[in-house]
């Protein structure tokens, strides 16, 4: 789950949600579904509507129905989808994410796309950045992939990780040695 905007709201209510997911597990001898967990949060923030809570979240997981991603925000919106980005830098992340996304991404390709998209947001948005955490959720639960320094990704790339092209993500590095100049052909001199 990822949070944005007002840190305390996200930190507090996400902890609270985690607590109730655990209670669901203890009471029902079964993990809560992604749909139910997200609805728990959306109903909760909806009860505070108009009082100034500010959150944008994504609840991601794997249950009996397979993989699922839900977008839940503080005006009570809850959307099921397979691609979301949230926060002040989300537009920049979408730019990279949408263009690189297709349903058949391999694990490594998906991780690289996520990393590259957050780099884009961290690079272009003043309120995003520093480092990026990457998680991967599969049938057997979530796995922490790594923490990546945005500046390091800019200059040196994410390091030796599967899926990365090698080298920095920065524009200057990507276009090094290329030129848009188009001079007319020089007449052959005798």
């Amino acid at each position: 789950m990822a949070g944005g905007v007002c840190i305390a709201d996200c930190q507090y209510w996400e902890t609270y949600l985690g607590m109730h997911c655990r209670l669901h597990e203890l009471r029902n001898r079964e993990r809560i579904s992604v749909s139910a967990a997200s609805k728990y949060l959306s109903n909760l923030v909806y009860s505070y509507k108009g009082m100034g809570l500010s959150m944008g979240t994504m609840i991601c997981g794997w249950d009996k129905t397979g993989p699922a991603v839900f977008y839940v925000d503080s005006d009570g919106t809850r959307l099921k989808g397979d691609l979301f980005s949230v926060g002040s830098g989300s537009t920049f992340a979408y730019g990279v994410l949408d263009q690189g996304y297709h349903w058949d991404l391999s694990d490594e390709e998906a991780q690289e796309l996520g990393r590259r998209s957050i780099y884009a947001a961290g690079h272009r948005d003043a309120f995003s950045g520093n480092t990026c955490n990457l998680y991967h959720v599969k049938e057997d639960g979530w796995k922490f992939i790594g923490n990546y320094d945005i500046s390091k990704m800019h200059y040196e790339g994410p390091g030796n990780v599967p899926g990365a092209p090698g080298g920095g993500y920065g524009y200057d590095l990507r276009v090094e040695g290329r030129s848009s100049a188009n001079p007319p052909p020089v007449a052959a001199t005798a």
């Binding site: 959306s42 909806y46 509507k49 925000d73 005006d75 009570g76 919106t77 809850r78």
Partner: peptide, 8 residues
């Protein structure tokens, strides 16, 4: 209409 209100 208003996000959140609609679905609720």
């Amino acid at each position: 209409g208003e996000p959140g209100d609609t679905v609720q």
